[in-house]
């Protein structure tokens, strides 16, 4: 459990980091919190020639910012910082609901929000939440900058839209419209484990109590967070009544095609998806169950 040989770089600016990635991209990995990368290096599941440690690129990357209608989460925001940010919780309480289920405090103290997204484990909580909020992934390289949304960012198991020379500099999230409620439900074997299945849901309700917009995404059932569009469709236009919840549950069950593993059969994961969709929508509606 010792990593292979690599060259360690600790650039002092974003430009320096991007220059290193431009030079070594194919043979380099970005080190932020290191909570997934370092174990993979120690297990020799990943071997890199160059490790680009971005922890010193500048204090402006360390804190989340709420400005106008946007919350931005730069590259070095620790998961624990986001979890405890009252400012963010005031406009996007879903993070405070989801983050306690990400691993353990020691890991969240070090692990970054952008790092979890860039790692893109399909059973991780943060990518799933990012798939139901209105998120934009801001990407930089020596070639310039670009933006992609969650649907395009998460491409496959541990694979994102990031090119080898690119860095995820921040995730920007639009503050939800008034009347938006969100919920995050997870079932994991142990506290802090990756989800067997997790569901994030968001619904915007107008003054009459009718849902005008809805997003539901599940973790642990596909190579990326999976949006459950059919379930969303039956919720939109409803008042999140029992009938709509039952229909969404059925739609979710039909929409996912999970694979089984040693922790859960495919059938169990499908059932969990439906159950968690039901519970998430019930919470949004305001039921305790």
């Amino acid at each position: 459990m010792k990593p292979g040989r690599f060259t360690y770089h600790a650039p002092r600016s974003l430009d320096a980091a991007l220059a290193l990635l431009a030079e070594h991209g194919d043979e380099a990995k970005v080190l932020a919190g290191g909570q997934s990368l370092v174990p993979m290096l120690n297990f020799r599941l990943a071997q890199v020639d160059h490790l680009v440690d971005i922890n010193r690129i500048g204090p402006e990357f360390a804190g989340p910012k709420v400005t106008g209608d946007t919350v931005t989460i730069p590259a070095l925001v620790r998961q624990r910082v986001l979890e405890r940010s009252a400012e963010v919780a005031a406009v996007l309480p879903v993070f405070a609901a989801a983050l306690p289920q990400v691993a353990h405090p020691q890991i969240r103290n070090r692990g970054t929000v952008c790092g979890s997204c860039a790692h893109a484990d399909p059973a991780a909580e943060l990518p799933t939440v990012m798939s139901v909020v209105d998120s934009t992934f801001r990407i930089a390289s020596a070639r310039g900058t670009r933006e992609v949304d969650a649907a395009d960012f998460f491409q496959f198991h541990l694979t994102t839209a990031l090119e080898p020379d690119e860095l995820l500099t921040e995730v920007a999230i639009r503050v939800p419209q008034p009347g938006t409620r969100m919920a995050f439900k997870e079932f994991a074997t142990r506290r802090g484990d990756f989800a067997l299945v997790a569901v994030a849901a968001s619904a915007t309700v107008d003054e009459s109590g009718t849902v005008t917009a809805c997003r539901i995404a599940a973790a642990g059932v596909a190579p990326t967070p999976q949006r459950l569009h059919d379930a969303e469709a039956v919720v939109i236009g409803s008042t999140v009544d029992d009938e709509a919840i039952a229909a969404a549950e059925a739609a979710a069950s039909a929409a996912v095609d999970p694979t089984g593993d040693i922790h859960a059969t495919a059938e169990h994961r499908r059932r969990l998806t439906a159950v968690l969709v039901r519970r998430a929508l019930a919470e949004i509606k305001g039921d305790q169950s």
């Binding site: 074997t189 859960a264 169990h268």
Partner: peptide, 11 residues
Amino acid sequence: VTPHRVATAVR
């Protein structure tokens, strides 16, 4: 008695 065994037994 893991969750998936319980779920399987119920099913």
